[in-house]
């Protein structure tokens, strides 16, 4: 029996209090084709219109009983405000997420960036804020509203060539450190705006720092101090998400000071739970494509049960939910939460 609203459930979870059933939500994008079709909106356009963004975001809890509503849907908002140009693929019929078309930094010499004074009024930051407000008006206090930001290293990879960033992390760690410090200010400034707009929680996505790419040593020395700085300044509950191999950076992830950590299907959650103890909030860790989209309802249920048995604190995807998720799979996921 459900005795709590989704929002109560999520807020209690973050406080470490018991909930009426396991929480099933996300801090990353979860627009669905089902929702888009109901509204008659084109995916390429919902990123550019606050009303459409909000309406699309609320369809996921409305249609499926998902415990959260998350917006925006792409990973370019902060980079765009700093000055990068984005491509939304307006003419493509495929589902494509916006990408960065023109970087801000083109070579090592350009790494000393000036953060625009009016940063939070630039790009789509006002649009996302407006969309958060509209979403809140639409669903009221019943569903938790979340938003996300990129971590400093991942954001650096959006505004300069990842190739260069990775090499310079070795060759010129001081220069990279300075850039990450500047980007930390950007992230905090944007986070404050989202908090003012009324989000219940924020996720920081530091995908670029996965141990698939970067050594735990570099993660700790170069990136962790900035993450700590960010989480110290957030008021709402926070989640640190890193995908890929994370078992060997799980302890520093917690040391970042985020309220919860989020890992994907490559993480061995049994081991993580053992390392972190009973009280740590661990969100994860199903494969949002191979299970939720291309699996069948049986596989979905089996996977969700496995996540819970392994010891996640909330069932949560390893990445954005791919829009074409079949409704029966989404429903199967939510059914598992009720036993």
């Amino acid at each position: 029996m459900e005795t709590m609203t989704s929002r109560e459930r999520v807020l209690k979870l973050f406080k470490g209090e018991p909930t009426d059933r396991p929480v099933c939500f996300s801090g990353m994008g979860n627009a669905t084709t089902e929702g888009l079709n109901k509204l008659g909106y084109k995916f390429a356009h919902v990123h550019l219109d606050a009303q459409q963004m909000a309406e699309t975001a609320v369809t996921t809890p409305q249609l499926f009983g998902f415990d959260s509503c998350v917006l925006p849907f792409d990973l370019c908002v902060e980079a765009e405000a700093i000055g990068a140009q984005i491509n939304t693929y307006p003419n493509s019929d495929d589902l494509l997420y916006p990408t960065i078309k023109e970087k801000v930094i083109h070579n090592e010499e350009e790494m000393e960036i000036t953060i625009p004074e009016d940063l939070v009024t630039r790009g789509r930051i006002p649009l996302v804020k407006e969309a958060i407000g509209i979403a809140r008006k639409t669903i009221g206090e019943t569903v938790a509203i979340g938003s996300y930001l990129l971590g400093p290293f991942t954001l650096a990879g959006q505004i300069m060539e990842l190739n260069d960033l990775l090499k310079l992390s070795f060759k010129k760690p001081d220069k990279v450190g300075k850039l990450l410090a500047d980007l930390t200010c950007v992230i905090v400034a944007v986070a404050k705006e989202y908090e003012a707009a009324g989000v219940d929680y924020l996720t920081v996505r530091e995908m670029g720092a996965t141990s698939d790419v970067l050594s735990p040593r570099v993660f700790k020395s170069l990136i962790l101090p900035h993450l700590k700085n960010i989480f110290e300044q957030l008021r709402v509950p926070s989640v640190l998400h890193i995908c890929g191999k994370t078992n060997n950076i799980i302890v520093p992830m917690v040391e970042s000071g985020a309220t919860a950590i989020s890992v994907d299907q490559k993480n061995d959650v049994v081991d993580t739970r053992k390392k972190l103890g009973d009280d740590a909030l661990i969100f994860g860790n199903y494969d949002p494509y191979n299970v939720l989209v291309s699996g069948n309802p049986e596989l979905v249920k089996e996977t969700m049960r496995k996540c819970l048995e392994d010891g996640v604190s909330a069932v949560w995807p390893g990445c954005d939910i791919w829009p074409t998720v079949p409704p029966e799979n989404f429903k199967a996921m939510m059914e598992t939460m009720n036993g």
């Binding site: 190739n163 090499k167 070795f170 060759k171 570099v218």
Partner: peptide, 14 residues
């Protein structure tokens, strides 16, 4: 062996 990661790999490739 996880002694090298992608940055090292890129530099070796160079």
């Amino acid at each position: 062996a996880e002694e090298y990661f992608v940055p090292e790999l890129l530099m070796c490739a160079d």
